[in-house]
Amino acid sequence: MNDNKPSPSTEAFTGLILDPQEILPSFTQAANWQERYRALMLLGKRLPPLDDALRQESAQVRGCESNAWLYHKEIDGRHYYLADSDARIVKGLIALLLTAVQGQDKKTIAALDLHEYFDRLGLSGQLSPSRTNGVLALAEAIKAAAIQPS
């Protein structure tokens, strides 16, 4: 990622805990799309907002209709991300993506099958085509950050 942009502290990356054992059941056990949508919105609230100084164009994820920013840091072979969006639903989708990759190694992140992951969560077919494209762009940015040399 671009070295000219401000960078969050290491603690900001490692302090973001998104436990799949706690988070994912709220989606897999939801009875309908309305409950999943509500869970998604609540999950987005768990992501800390990025400081305005970090909402840099160089950190924006291209391909998202909404504004979304992504930062990455590799620490001891593990990959950590901070991300935010100005749209609540996108912020929730970001949180779901980060739940799958936060603190993982490069191999695990590279192997992430977004379609299977969203199928398992009951989100496939529920997102608009533009939102699906945005989530795919975020997933690709996450994968690209993990495989780029630091």
Rank of each mutant, 00 (worst) to 15 (best):
K45D: 10
L70N: 03
R38I: 09
A83H: 12
N67M: 14
V135F: 11
D119A: 06
Q102H: 05
K106C: 13
T10G: 05
Q34A: 13
Q29A: 07
T108H: 08
L123Q: 00
S26N: 06
P48F: 14
R131A: 08
Q56R: 15
S9L: 10
L112N: 04
L114K: 10
V90P: 11
K45R: 13
G125T: 09
K45P: 06
A59V: 11
K5Q: 14
I23H: 01
V101D: 02
Q148I: 06
R55Q: 15
K5Y: 06
G77N: 08
A137R: 05
I109G: 02
N4K: 13
W33A: 05
L50S: 09
D119Q: 07
C64V: 05
L50Y: 15
Q60E: 14
G63V: 06
S7V: 10
M1Y: 09
K107V: 11
S7L: 12
S85F: 10
L121S: 00
Y117C: 00
I17K: 07
L123Y: 01
Q126H: 13
L123M: 06
D105T: 07
L98R: 00
R46S: 15
I17E: 04
K45F: 12
Y80W: 14
P49F: 14
Y71K: 11
M1H: 13
L127F: 03
Y37I: 10
I17P: 01
W33P: 02
R38F: 10
L16F: 10
A39S: 14
S66H: 05
K91E: 06
I89F: 15
Y80G: 11
L54Y: 13
A95G: 07
Q29F: 12
Q21R: 01
K5G: 14
T14H: 03
L98G: 01
P149E: 11
I109H: 03
P149L: 14
K5A: 14
T108A: 12
I94W: 08
S124F: 07
K45Y: 11
